[in-house]
Amino acid sequence: MMNPVPMLRRLGASTINALWRLGFATRFLIATVRHTPAAFRRLPLTVREIYFAGVLSLTIILVSGLFVGMVLGLQGYDTLARFGSSEALGVLVALSLVRELGPVVAALLFASRAGSAITAEIGLMKATEQLDAMEMMAVDPIARVIAPRFWGGVLAMPLLGMLFTATGIIGGFLIGVVMIGVDSGQFWSQMQSAVDLRQDVLNGVFKSFVFGIAVTWIAVFEGFEAPPTAEGVSGATTRTVVTSALVILALDFVLTSFMFMR
């Protein structure tokens, strides 16, 4: 029989460690948000981060969005045609993209494309003692490095989510209407009567916004807390992607249950 005491001790230690990290991450977020004015006073810094997080993610977001929409068009048509209601394809494509796939898949792609880059960059800055050097020069690294990256990511994410959704719907349109030949008027008019601006579109944008905060927060925190070694930076980058993915999916469930259930 195994002795339960060391196991319990390990469980306790890992719980305390997780709690400590969570508390530290929260304090880190508060410090970042408190330095928001600094990020917007030096606007070129934030714009630069929007460029790195947003513009450079455009390719992967647009291409993935188009293909996700096209696959939805094909699969949705195949299933709907069995019930003789292929005109509802627009509703299926639009609602699944606007409500779920748009925000979630865009956030997952954003975490692996931009989140990992943010973590690696900050982690490497820490490993090469650039952050310490800034502090020596009385430059707060949170104001100079963290806050612009945080806001760049938070502002870029909803835009990327909307772009993903829009290209996805266009992809569904291309397959459904242009290739298969579903009636164009039915496709759009059924979509318009089924999709509600506040209930569906704005909730989707809100979801992306929340995911943006979560992913960027995790990314900057992991980078800032990375052990200053090559191994530490690579581990932090991996953790960013894994934690972000789990947090996105868990948050998505929570947000969905609040938004769409009555």
């Binding site: 835009l159 990327l160 772009l163 959704t165 719907i169 318009q192 009567s193 999709v195 601006l197 579109v201």
Partner: peptide
């Protein structure tokens, strides 16, 4: 960088307009 960020933001807003007018029919 400013130009590209401008294009990016304009694209994002265009997507929002597309979603609210063409997909959700705001005029309804």
């Amino acid at each position: 960088i400013d130009l590209w960020v401008g294009i990016f933001v304009a694209l994002g807003l265009a997507a929002l307009v597309f979603l609210s007018l063409q997909v959700a029919n705001l005029t309804g």
